[in-house]
């Protein structure tokens, strides 16, 4: 690509003179877009403000000025949501463009302040474990509502994280009462069950064409949680390692399907990594124990084979 390429294209009638004028403005640098720079600055501002507010809330709890500052933050939060209600477009199942450049960031700030203030209330007014559990659920539901209502993928990720936290807490809360909170031996199973259930729900939502552009974010979470959970399982519950390995292979089939249908190959990278670790583990445990030299040959041949396969069948991996 050189500076004269657009002109050559225009001369070859590949693009019209009008199109050339538009493209030329951009490629020659006569107009420079600082769209992303300003977005990043805005995002950083929101993050800095919210984390500052978060620290402020946890410091000097109980002082008078402190209460005033929390009230101020609450007012800002309500202002953010008020702005969203006032300016937000109506709900649609399809993707909805944000009404203006600031809308997404205002909403994000509101959501971040919401969780800070909610955390403060909990620390200040009741420190019971059970309420923490339900608070997380409330946060998750609220975030999901916001994400769907105003079409915000950032808040959606927050919502999924909150929901996953709720699940993790719920399963391990029994142990929490007994005092061994850190013994979360079955957390990886929770992660896998959660990932599978969530993937099922998302699959049906996608079928019904409800916010189809959210599907990728969900699937990314699901695949990561599932593979990490299963890999952890192989090493923690090594009695059932065959089960976990076969679950990883099932996950790989899904990832392959996704790659072929949606042309999103990111999941294939996850699947490959997980399956390779799992297979290597199995081989190491049951086959290569006696002969360490075999490892070198194994690495060379297996990965060489993968490279060869991808190059041979490259049309399968094309967008």
């Amino acid at each position: 690509m050189t500076r004269s390429t657009p002109r050559q294209m225009a001369e070859k009638k590949l693009i019209t003179e009008d199109e050339f004028k538009k493209i030329e403005l951009i490629t020659s640098g006569k107009i420079v877009s600082v769209f992303y720079e300003l977005r990043i600055l805005l995002y950083m501002g929101v993050m800095l403000f919210a984390s500052g507010a978060g620290i402020l809330i946890y410091q000097n709890i109980g002082e008078l000025g402190h209460l005033a500052s929390i009230l101020l933050l609450a007012v800002i939060m309500l202002g953010c949501f008020g702005y969203a209600i006032k300016h937000g477009h109506d709900y649609k199942n399809d993707q909805v463009e944000s009404p203006n450049a600031y809308f997404d960031y205002v909403l994000l700030l509101g959501c971040l302040l919401f969780v800070s203030i909610q955390g403060y209330m909990q620390v200040q007014y009741d420190a019971f474990t059970q309420s923490m559990l339900w608070n997380t659920l409330i946060t998750a539901i609220f975030y999901f509502y916001i994400a769907y209502r105003y079409d915000h993928i950032g808040v959606l990720s927050l919502a999924i994280t909150a929901l996953a936290t709720f699940w993790g807490l719920k399963i391990s809360s029994k142990k929490w009462y007994n005092g061994d909170f850190f013994d979360q031996a079955d957390l990886h199973i929770t992660a896998m069950v959660f990932a599978t259930l969530l993937a099922g729900i998302v699959f049906s939502l996608d079928k019904k064409s409800i916010k189809k552009h959210f599907t990728f974010t969900y699937k990314n979470f699901c695949f990561l949680l599932f593979f990490i959970g299963a890999l952890t399982g192989i090493f923690i519950d090594s009695i059932y390692d065959l089960l976990f390995v076969s679950l990883i292979y099932v996950g790989c089939i899904f990832a392959w399907q996704q790659a072929q249908q949606k042309k999103s190959f990111l999941f294939l990278v996850y699947a490959f990594t997980a399956a390779y670790i799992a297979t290597t583990y199995l081989l190491g445990k049951y086959l290569f124990n006696s002969e360490p030299v075999l490892w070198y040959y194994y690495f060379l041949i297996s990965c060489g084979g993968i490279i060869y396969g991808i190059i041979q069948y490259k049309r399968l991996f094309k967008r």
Binding site: I31, S33, F35
Partner: peptide, 8 residues
């Protein structure tokens, strides 16, 4: 020559 619009 600067714009806050996303040109691409």
């Amino acid at each position: 020559g600067f714009t806050s619009k996303n040109l691409v």
